[in-house]
């Protein structure tokens, strides 16, 4: 009986599945749009991370499972479409760690989308730097100041975008 209950609790119904698919598609489009405006001249790997507005939206609406699902599928798909195995390692480590930080901070209920997103942006870039250290085994820490700064700034912008989204999209998609 209990196994059956947990089974139905873990199941994603069709409406939610469709929503997650839409969210993933939106995140992928964001990834594509920002690839048209490269910021990598600042330091290798710097980008806005607009697609994180989607996962942030889900996380702030307290759908943590959805945020992780959409994030993982988006990372896999964008690696298959635009990236390589190495770029997947970077983005996966960054994405998962920042999402973990975002979810934990959001669960405290003390911070707004912008604050949560700034922490997520910094966490994202720090995680990438750790991966880079293990791959290159070199002096990657010299990028830390620039990456931490750009992570905070981009995180703040993404947070502001999701704040607007959260205000505009009032529909409660939770079922």
């Amino acid at each position: 009986m209990s196994a059956k209950q947990s089974d139905s609790a873990n199941r994603i119904d069709t409406k939610r599945l469709t929503l997650y698919a839409l969210f993933t598609a939106a995140a992928l489009i964001f990834s594509y749009i920002e690839s048209l405006f490269p910021l990598a001249f600042i330091a290798p790997g710097v980008k806005l991370g607009l697609s994180n507005a989607v996962t942030l939206f889900l996380a702030v609406r307290k759908d943590y499972k959805g945020a992780f699902l959409v994030s993982i599928v988006r990372l896999l798909l964008s690696a298959l479409l635009f990236g390589s195995f190495i770029s997947f390692l970077f983005s996966f480590a960054g994405g998962m760690f920042s999402l973990l930080v975002i979810c934990l901070l959001n669960k405290t209920g003390l911070f707004s989308a912008v604050g949560v997103s700034i922490a997520g942006g910094v966490a994202h870039n720090v995680a990438q730097l750790v991966v880079a250290y293990f791959i290159i085994k070199g002096a990657v820490w010299y990028y830390l100041p620039v990456l931490a700064l750009s992570g905070a700034l981009c995180g703040g912008l993404v947070g502001a975008v999701s704040l607007i989204l959260l205000k505009k999209i009032k529909t409660n998609y939770k079922l």
């Binding site: 911070f111 707004s112 912008v114 931490a148 905070a152």
Partner: peptide
């Protein structure tokens, strides 16, 4: 923006300054 966001901003600035 909530009041506690300041903590995150201060922490971020601290990390950035420290790394510099």
């Amino acid at each position: 923006m909530k009041k506690h966001d300041l903590f995150i901003i201060v922490a971020a600035v601290f990390i950035i300054a420290l790394s510099f």
